[in-house]
Amino acid sequence: MSWVVLVLSGILETVWAASLKGFFRPAAVVTFVVALALSMAGLAYALRTIPLGTGYAVWVGIGTIGTALYGMVALGDSATAARITCLVLIVAGVIGLKLLP
């Protein structure tokens, strides 16, 4: 259950980070506050049973990758091979933290 909550919290990190783009609009502010609070609460819950370093890396990794992909798909950020390679390296690092002792 902790892993499911952690992944959902990472997705919510993407939501609050993406809402910063339009932060001075009321809907974006509400989205930011709600997603941030739920994301942090979920992270705190998951860290009760998941090691701190692993849990935080997974949470940040999901948020980083999700935000970068959102920028590329929805906002027209560049999607170069180098940027995509860097995102793949983040995924590899997070998987390594989970699988390796």
Rank of each mutant, 00 (worst) to 15 (best):
I62C: 03
A46E: 07
A44R: 06
T14S: 01
V30H: 00
T14F: 00
V4T: 10
L38F: 05
A35W: 04
T31E: 01
R83D: 15
A57I: 12
A27S: 10
Y70L: 06
R48V: 06
Y45F: 15
D77H: 15
L75P: 07
V34T: 02
W59G: 00
S9Q: 01
L87Y: 08
A18N: 02
A68M: 14
G22H: 03
L36Q: 03
T67F: 04
F24W: 08
L97S: 03
G93Q: 06
I95F: 11
L38R: 05
F24S: 09
A79W: 07
L100Y: 15
Y70R: 00
C86P: 01
G55M: 06
R83S: 13
V33T: 14
Y45I: 11
L99F: 15
C86F: 14
I11Q: 01
E13N: 05
L69P: 06
E13V: 03
T80A: 13
V73E: 06
L52D: 11
L87I: 09
G53F: 13
D77Y: 08
A92V: 11
A82Y: 07
V5M: 04
M1S: 10
L8Y: 07
A18P: 02
L36R: 02
L99E: 15
Y56N: 00
V5S: 01
L43C: 15
G42I: 13
A57M: 14
V33W: 07
V15G: 03
L89M: 08
R25E: 12
Y56W: 06
V94Q: 04
R25T: 08
S9R: 01
G63L: 01
A82R: 11
S39M: 06
G63C: 04
A57N: 14
G71V: 15
P51H: 09
W3F: 08
V29A: 11
R25P: 00
F32S: 11
G53M: 03
A68H: 14
A41F: 12
A79N: 10
